[in-house]
Simulated scan of single mutants.
Amino acid sequence: MRVKMIVAYDGTNYKGWQVQPNGITIEEVLNKNLSNLLGEQIVVSGASRTDSGVHSLGNIAVFDTNTRMPADKIAFALNQRLPEDIVVQGSCEVEDGWHPRYQNSRKTYEYRILNRTFRMPTRRLDTYFYHYPLDVEKMKKAASYLEGEHDFKSFCAIGAQVKTTVRTIYACDVEKEGDIITIRVTGNGFLYNMVRIIAGTLVQVGGGAIKPEAVKEILAKKDRSAAGPTAPAHGLTMMGIEFENVE
Rank of each mutant, 00 (worst) to 15 (best):
F152R: 09
L78V: 12
A157S: 15
N79H: 11
D10E: 13
K140D: 05
I198M: 15
N66G: 07
P100H: 10
R196Y: 05
M120S: 09
I218G: 05
E40N: 12
P21M: 07
E84K: 15
P232A: 04
P232L: 02
N31G: 05
S35I: 10
K107D: 01
C172E: 05
R123L: 08
G148Y: 11
V54D: 01
G200I: 09
Q41W: 11
G16Y: 12
Q80V: 06
K32F: 11
A209I: 06
P21V: 03
A214V: 04
K15T: 07
G148W: 13
D51Q: 06
R116K: 12
R184L: 10
I86G: 08
P100I: 06
S52Y: 11
L191N: 11
K32W: 08
I210W: 06
V136T: 14
G178Y: 01
V205T: 04
E95S: 12
M238D: 09
M5L: 15
Q103W: 03
I158V: 14
Y14F: 15
N31V: 08
I26L: 08
F152I: 09
H55M: 03
G11L: 07
K222V: 03
L34G: 03
K4H: 07
R196I: 02
I86W: 13
I218R: 03
I198K: 05
N188W: 07
S52H: 12
K216W: 03
D96P: 09
L30V: 08
G58P: 11
D173G: 10
E27Q: 15
S91G: 09
R124E: 12
E247S: 10
C92D: 09
G208M: 09
R119A: 07
Y9W: 10
K15N: 13
T117S: 12
C156N: 08
S48E: 14
N33I: 02
H131V: 00
K211I: 00
D173S: 15
E175M: 10
A75C: 14
T108R: 10
R81N: 14
I218W: 08
T117N: 07
E110S: 13
G148H: 11
A160N: 01
R112D: 00
H234W: 07
F63Q: 03
Q80L: 13
E110G: 00
I24Q: 12
A209V: 08
K4V: 09
A199C: 01
Y130S: 00
L82A: 12
V162K: 13
T25W: 10
K211M: 11
Q103H: 12
T230Y: 05
S52A: 15
T168F: 07
I42S: 06
G159H: 09
I24G: 00
R116F: 00
I197Q: 04
P100C: 10
G53N: 05
Y192T: 03
N31A: 02
Q161N: 14
T230Q: 05
I183N: 00
D126I: 04
P212V: 02
W98R: 06
S48P: 10
R123G: 00
G148F: 13
V136Y: 13
I42V: 15
L82D: 08
Q103N: 13
D72K: 14
I183E: 00
K222L: 04
K221P: 03
Y14E: 06
M5K: 06
T25H: 07
A157Y: 06
F190S: 03
L202W: 07
E213Y: 00
L134M: 15
C92W: 14
G97T: 02
N245I: 03
F155M: 04
P232V: 01
H131T: 04
N245T: 04
R196P: 02
A231Q: 04
T237H: 08
Y9S: 03
H150A: 09
